[in-house]
Amino acid sequence: MTAREATLARIRAAIGDAPSVPAIPRDYRVRGDLEAGAAASLFAQRAAEYRAAVHHTGLDGVPALIATILASAGDTRAVVPTGLPADWLAEVPSSVLVYTDDGGMTTEDLDAVDVVVTGCAVAIAETGTVVLDGAPDQGRRVITLLPDHHICVVSVDRIVATVPEGLHRLDPTRPLTMISGPSATSDIELTRVEGVHGPRNLDVIIATAG
């Protein structure tokens, strides 16, 4: 008998022939009662509470804002995924070296990069969370991990109020990363401090259409 068969046999013996299976009461809140504008401002507030730097702009203001953030951080090497809208980097000065990761960059290459710019799949207002799903405007997971600075552009139509709404929009078969503020730890005296292994600086740009 394999370990698999033995384990399954023990489980069946333990639960018996007619285990009672409770119904799942799903009367918790699934949808938030927030209009789009209210959801965006709640998202901004909650992301900021976890020390993400939050910016607001119209879609056409994104290129200028990205250039400003890069300049004030002093970033000189950037990486972007292949599907990032090209015009988002239009105002980045030529002194900043921009790599486009097509999957070929090594971890050493990425470790030497200062900043990554991505979009996001979904943002969840109540928890201040952005979710990346590896789509072309977000890239593979490692590019948002090794650089110490992450600029994430969140289009307002990607913002939902609640965790259930957020998960509902996601495809579980994709590699997913939920990000709520910069890397942090509470391991020393249960006091939260920002900045361990992941990006220590997170800028979130909330972009309104038009």
Binding site: G128, P175, L176, S180, S183, G198
Partner: peptide
């Protein structure tokens, strides 16, 4: 005691070209 922890990773088998 956080609304959400900083990072949650979800993966399904091996993802081609990622991880």
């Amino acid at each position: 005691g956080e609304r959400m922890n900083p990072y949650t990773s979800l993966w399904t088998g091996a993802h081609r070209g990622d991880g």
